[in-house]
Measured scan of single mutants.
Amino acid sequence: EPSQADLDALLSAVRDNRLSIEQAVTLLTPSSGGGSGGGSMDAKEILTRFKDGGLDRAAAQALLAGRTPA
């Protein structure tokens, strides 16, 4: 399960175009075949909204942490 520091680094990389959204989703869902963790939004949607400015960093982190299976 990614830590808050991992999520923060991942969000920074996506925002700075050092990591594509697809690459980030793969890192967030290493063994689930890329499927959502059952959250209301999947990781790709969360990351896309964050990059487009629709979500701030704290909200994106909380959503990603919340949808990651324990």
Score class of each variant (00 low, 15 high):
1 E>W: 14
1 E>H: 11
2 P>M: 13
2 P>L: 15
2 P>A: 12
3 S>F: 15
3 S>C: 13
4 Q>K: 14
4 Q>D: 12
4 Q>E: 14
4 Q>P: 14
5 A>K: 07
5 A>N: 14
5 A>H: 10
5 A>M: 15
6 D>G: 09
6 D>W: 15
6 D>T: 07
7 L>F: 07
8 D>L: 08
9 A>T: 08
9 A>R: 10
9 A>I: 07
9 A>G: 06
9 A>D: 10
9 A>F: 10
9 A>M: 12
10 L>S: 01
10 L>I: 10
10 L>M: 05
11 L>C: 02
11 L>E: 01
12 S>L: 10
12 S>E: 11
12 S>K: 06
12 S>W: 05
13 A>K: 05
13 A>W: 06
13 A>E: 03
14 V>T: 01
14 V>D: 00
14 V>S: 00
14 V>H: 00
14 V>P: 00
14 V>Q: 00
15 R>S: 06
15 R>L: 11
16 D>T: 08
16 D>R: 06
16 D>A: 09
17 N>C: 05
17 N>F: 04
17 N>P: 01
17 N>W: 03
17 N>G: 15
18 R>H: 09
18 R>D: 05
19 L>S: 02
19 L>F: 04
19 L>N: 01
19 L>P: 00
20 S>Q: 03
20 S>I: 02
20 S>Y: 02
20 S>L: 03
20 S>E: 03
21 I>S: 00
21 I>L: 04
21 I>N: 01
22 E>I: 06
22 E>R: 05
23 Q>I: 07
23 Q>K: 09
24 A>G: 03
24 A>C: 05
24 A>P: 00
24 A>L: 03
25 V>C: 06
25 V>F: 05
26 T>I: 14
27 L>K: 05
27 L>M: 12
27 L>W: 07
27 L>H: 04
28 L>D: 01
28 L>M: 05
28 L>E: 00
29 T>K: 11
29 T>I: 10
30 P>C: 14
30 P>A: 14
30 P>R: 15
30 P>S: 15
31 S>P: 11
32 S>T: 13
32 S>V: 09
33 G>S: 11
33 G>N: 11
33 G>I: 12
33 G>M: 11
34 G>W: 04
34 G>D: 08
35 G>M: 12
36 S>Y: 14
36 S>N: 11
36 S>F: 14
36 S>E: 14
36 S>L: 11
36 S>Q: 12
37 G>F: 14
37 G>C: 13
38 G>H: 12
39 G>A: 12
39 G>E: 11
39 G>W: 07
39 G>I: 13
39 G>M: 14
39 G>L: 14
40 S>G: 08
40 S>Q: 12
40 S>Y: 14
40 S>L: 15
40 S>V: 12
40 S>R: 07
40 S>K: 08
40 S>M: 13
41 M>Y: 11
41 M>L: 09
41 M>N: 05
42 D>T: 12
42 D>A: 08
43 A>H: 06
43 A>V: 12
44 K>Y: 13
44 K>N: 06
44 K>W: 14
45 E>N: 06
45 E>K: 05
46 I>V: 06
47 L>S: 00
47 L>N: 00
47 L>H: 00
48 T>L: 08
48 T>A: 06
48 T>S: 08
49 R>S: 05
49 R>Y: 03
49 R>I: 05
49 R>P: 01
50 F>C: 01
50 F>G: 00
50 F>I: 01
51 K>M: 06
51 K>V: 04
51 K>Y: 05
52 D>V: 08
52 D>H: 14
52 D>M: 14
53 G>C: 04
53 G>S: 03
53 G>H: 04
53 G>W: 03
53 G>A: 03
53 G>P: 01
54 G>R: 15
54 G>A: 10
55 L>P: 00
55 L>K: 01
55 L>H: 02
56 D>M: 04
56 D>H: 04
56 D>C: 06
56 D>W: 02
56 D>A: 05
56 D>Q: 04
56 D>F: 02
57 R>Q: 07
57 R>C: 05
57 R>G: 04
57 R>I: 07
57 R>E: 06
58 A>F: 08
58 A>L: 10
58 A>W: 09
58 A>I: 07
58 A>K: 09
59 A>H: 06
59 A>W: 05
59 A>Q: 15
59 A>V: 06
59 A>F: 05
60 A>T: 05
60 A>K: 00
61 Q>T: 10
62 A>E: 11
62 A>I: 10
62 A>H: 08
62 A>P: 01
63 L>P: 00
64 L>V: 02
65 A>L: 14
66 G>V: 10
66 G>Q: 13
66 G>Y: 08
66 G>R: 08
67 R>K: 08
68 T>Y: 11
68 T>P: 12
68 T>Q: 14
68 T>N: 10
68 T>A: 09
69 P>N: 13
69 P>E: 13
69 P>T: 07
69 P>Q: 10
69 P>Y: 02
70 A>R: 07
70 A>H: 03
70 A>C: 14
70 A>S: 09
70 A>M: 03
